[in-house]
Design a protein around this nucleic acid. Structure first.
Lengths: 114, 114
DNA sequence: GCTATACTTAACCATTCAGTTAAGTGTTAG
DNA sequence: CTAACACTTAACTGAATGGTTAAGTATAGC
């Protein structure tokens, strides 16, 4: 099921590129949940939810365990850390850019900025 | 051209979910580049490159300026900062998880970990 | 055993993606 | 003016996405 042709960062960033899946991540940050727990706030069918969870699991963002007839999902944020580390390499760029913006704003004291 | 139905974070994470586009970002971190500059290391046609740049531009990850007949691209990492900030909200989770792993490893001094 | 519950799998659909080739546009060089 | 250059746009392709409904599987409760 996992696509070995796609590298881990591809899968993590892709998994996080959908608002429903980010909401699922946010929900799981509150604690473990079953699929029926998850299906309630998101107006989506169970098969649709299954697909989202599959994509999150392929990205190693969540872990799933069957307990009885329920599937329990919990967050595994290690993959997110890798994505954050990739982004952090550019932190210096956006900090520099915001510094420039700040300096620029100081040169134009009280003009309306738009 | 921009898809207003998709929110900014969707576009940023999606743009970064492709290895070619991440390579373009990495290349642009070295400094501005034209499309022919970019097309060389990536074995892709110009129209293919144009599409990738369009996706990066839609995500506000790059800025493009035509100078003569060349298109100059440069990094605009502010959108990346937003993505990093989203991920940072889960930093506590992966740090906690790594702490547990560390504690766990300390309880099993020199066993082979698999 | 039977039924309800909690998913899963299969099949399908419309849209988007990533790539291509071919033709078009605008700019620079000679 | 003409030709080369640096893209851009159009049109097409195969595959993947995000969603659905319908049918199947496995567990729990009675």
């Amino acid at each position: 099921m996992a696509k070995p042709t796609r590298q881990p960062l591809d899968r993590v960033f892709f998994a996080l590129s959908d608002p429903t899946r980010r909401s699922i991540v946010m929900r799981l940050a509150q604690g473990e949940a079953t699929m029926t727990d998850l299906s309630k706030p998101f107006s989506i069918s169970l098969p649709g939810l299954t697909k989202h969870l599959q994509i999150l699991a392929d990205a190693d963002l969540i872990e799933r365990r069957k307990r009885g007839r329920s599937q329990h999902c919990r967050l595994n944020p290690v993959a997110m850390r890798d994505a954050a580390e990739w982004l952090d390499r550019y932190r210096v760029f956006w900090e520099r850019q915001l510094d420039s913006l700040e300096r620029y704003l100081k040169t134009m004291p009280t003009e309306d900025a738009n």
